[in-house]
C-alpha cells in the first residue's frame, strides 16, 4: 500500500510552519504508523532532505513519548492506543493522512511534530507525590488497602503522561492528567495526610502553566490511550472543593516547604 502524507513542518518555535505533502514509498499494512514514518524519513534522507522530527521511544504504548494528531485525532483513529500502537492496516491504500503536532499553549513547539511537555513535570513537582523519605517506610503489609480502592487507584495511575488529553481539548485543559494523579494518590491510605494540600498545589500550578478550564465535553477520555475515566475529574473537583472549604493553604502560602 501507499499513502499521501500532509505533515506539519516547522524549523523551530520562532519560524512559521506549514504543511508539506509526501507520497510514501511502498508500505506493508502490518507496519506501525511510526515505522511508516521511519520509512518516509529514510527516503527523505536518501534524497538529501531533512527527515521529519517526531517523538517516540518505547513503541509499545507505555512511555508516553509519542504524540501526533493523525487526521485530527490525537494518537490516531483507534481508542485506547497510542500513536506507536497504531498500524497501517487502519488506513486505506491511497488515503491522504494529515499529521500534526499536539497543539496547546503550554506545550511549546520544538520542531516539526515535537512539542515540549515540561509543564506536566512542573505540575507533578508541585505536589504529585507522597512525601516519604527513603528508608522511613513501615512494612508494606502493615497498611492494608481494600482491593477495590487499590484497583481504582491503579486505573488512574496508568496515565502515561503523553498530553493527548490536552491536545484533544478545545480549552487545552489538563484536568484529566492532573485528576489521574490526584485520584491515584488520594484513593490510597498512604496519600491521605497530604490529600488537601496536594490537590490545591497541583491545581494552582496547572492554572499557572496556562492550561484551560474543563467544560466536561469528554474529548480527553475519548483519546486517552489508557482510557482514563472522566470520573476522576469529578473526584478531583470534589477533593478541591473539600480542601477549599477546609481552608487548606494554597501552595505559595504553605507554612512549611513540604519537606
Amino acid at each position: 500500500m501507499k499513502v499521501r502524507l500532509k505533515v506539519w513542518r516547522q524549523k523551530n518555535a520562532e519560524s512559521p510552519g506549514g504543511f508539506e505533502t509526501y507520497d510514501t514509498p511502498d508500505l506493508n499494512s502490518n507496519m506501525s504508523f511510526l515505522e511508516m514514518l521511519d520509512v518516509v524519513n529514510e527516503d527523505l534522507a536518501g534524497r538529501g532532505q531533512e527527515p521529519i522530527a517526531f517523538d517516540h521511544d518505547c513503541r509499545e504504548g507505555i512511555c508516553g513519548t509519542c504524540s501526533l494528531v493523525i487526521n485530527g485525532k490525537p494518537h490516531g483513529p483507534h481508542r485506547k492506543v497510542a500513536t506507536c500502537q497504531t498500524y497501517m492496516r487502519s488506513f486505506k491504500d491511497g488515503e491522504t493522512i494529515v499529521v500534526e503536532p499536539f497543539r496547546a499553549k503550554p506545550f511549546p513547539l520544538i520542531r516539526d511534530l515535537v512539542v515540549d511537555r515540561k509543564s506536566f513535570d512542573r505540575i507533578i513537582q508541585s505536589g504529585g507525590f507522597i512525601s516519604v523519605r527513603t528508608g522511613s517506610a513501615p512494612d508494606a503489609n502493615s497498611t492494608p488497602v481494600p482491593k477495590i480502592h487499590s484497583d481504582l487507584a491503579m486505573d488512574a495511575a496508568q496515565c502515561i503522561g503523553c498530553g493527548a488529553c490536552v491536545a484533544a481539548c478545545k480549552n487545552a485543559s489538563a484536568m484529566l492528567f492532573v485528576s489521574a494523579k490526584v485520584s491515584h494518590l488520594g484513593l490510597l491510605p498512604q496519600g491521605q495526610p497530604e490529600r488537601d494540600r496536594r490537590v490545591m498545589a497541583m491545581v494552582t500550578t496547572m492554572d499557572e502553566e496556562g492550561f484551560g478550564s474543563c467544560t466536561v465535553t469528554g474529548s480527553c477520555e475519548a483519546v486517552c490511550p489508557k482510557a482514563i475515566s472522566l470520573d476522576f475529574i469529578a473526584r478531583m473537583n470534589r477533593d478541591y472543593g473539600v480542601a477549599l472549604i477546609k481552608g487548606e493553604p494554597r501552595r505559595n502560602q504553605a507554612s512549611e516547604g513540604g519537606a
Binding site: F129, V132, T134, A137, P138, N141, L188, Q190
Partner: peptide, 18 residues
C-alpha cells in the same frame, strides 16, 4: 516497603494485603 509507602498500587488480595 518503600514503594508501597510512595503509593505504588501493587496488586492486592481482598483482605487488603499484597
Amino acid at each position: 516497603d518503600q514503594c508501597a509507602a510512595q503509593g505504588v498500587p501493587f496488586a492486592r488480595e481482598y483482605g487488603g494485603l499484597l
